[in-house]
Design a protein around this nucleic acid. Structure first.
Lengths: 189, 189
DNA sequence: AGACCAAACTAACAAGTGTTAGTTGGTTTG
DNA sequence: CAAACCAACTAACACTTGTTAGTTTGGTCT
């Protein structure tokens, strides 16, 4: 559909601006200017500023939650699962760094969809936690404070959107392996 | 000074609101309401909304940069230095979670002080990097991609402001040790 | 050629923005 | 006790915000 593609252009343009200044500091006139049109014209394609944010965030959140579900129910070792989670974040983030910025920084400005988003997020974190937990029971993973481990990994993965654009070229596979290595084995010799 | 304390109250109140919604989404009327006064009255104590942000961010950034300088020039092992950096982040963040949110999310809304802030940040990161580098040369630290190690540690430390308030009670020392453990030794058994 | 339509436009809106000016009442100070 | 001061207030400002209404444009199908 022709209209859909124009809508997506707007969403991508907006995401780029949201990453730079945050949702609240970006005006419809900013988005319009970046699209080479007037603010009122945006409303031929989208229904509100809110809708743009929703489209950016919910799509990503659903992608994460869904993939996590698959990883969790696969029959791999816990360490393998963690590596897949790392690869998932690297992959999604490298495809959409702008959107990931909104997901991380602007979710609180969701309105009707805020509860739904929070549910997705909690579910994601619980699955992550349960993988760590069975890894500890398995003796695959060292018996350290589980919340500290979860927090540390998640923080790093959630910050990827800041860091990936700074790399000249990204070899998604190589980065995933390096990251898993540091996150799982640490940095101590 | 009496006036100074009122000014600090405003800054702390504002920081709390900035953490919840971000600098741009918080209005002077929001801050005033949280202080139990009218927006115009704020200007008896501060000169602009900008100034509030500046006071929050620059003080923290200077504290980090200054402490990093001290850590760097001490004659400890690199691993010891890294542990001190972790403790520094835990300590500052536990004392001012609200301010840390602004430091992380709203620095781009600094205006005159933006360049100064960016310089402080670059200097901090370069010192961090150079500690890692000499650790590798020393054979204290494993020879992995230095940027990945730096990114991973910094991401976790910078996200502490999200996580610390969720803990019921914080034992700063214990948390520093646990975090250092996970960040340095990883999670693999 | 004429009807249709998507997608741009202009003009305007009500509400909200940061900030200034001038005022008021209570407290401290000479 | 009067003067000065502090910290709140009311009222208002110029400007920006998201959004709506109605109009124009250029291309496509019948």
């Amino acid at each position: 559909m022709k209209q859909e593609s124009r809508k997506n252009e707007i969403i991508e343009t907006a995401a780029k601006l949201f990453k730079e200044k945050g949702y609240s500091a970006v005006t419809m006139r900013d988005i319009a200017a970046a699209m080479g049109m007037k603010a009122a014209s945006l409303y031929n394609h989208i229904s509100s500023k809110q809708e743009i944010l929703k489209e950016i965030i919910i799509a990503l959140a659903e992608e994460f939650t869904q993939s996590m579900e698959q990883i969790k129910t696969s029959n791999k070792t816990c360490i393998e699962k963690l590596k897949e989670i790392v690869a998932l974040h690297v992959s999604i983030t490298s495809k959409n760094t702008f959107g990931m910025a909104s997901l991380n920084n602007d979710w609180m400005h969701l309105e009707e969809q805020l509860d739904y988003y929070l549910n997705l997020r909690v579910s994601y974190e619980e699955n992550f936690r349960s993988i760590l937990k069975s890894g500890i029971l398995n003796k695959e993973i060292s018996n350290k404070n589980i919340e500290v481990m979860l927090f540390s990994m998640l923080s790093t993965l959630r910050s990827l959107y800041v860091w990936i654009p700074k790399k000249e070229v990204i070899d998604v596979n190589k980065l995933s392996i390096q990251l898993s290595d540091v996150l799982i084995d640490g940095i101590y010799k």
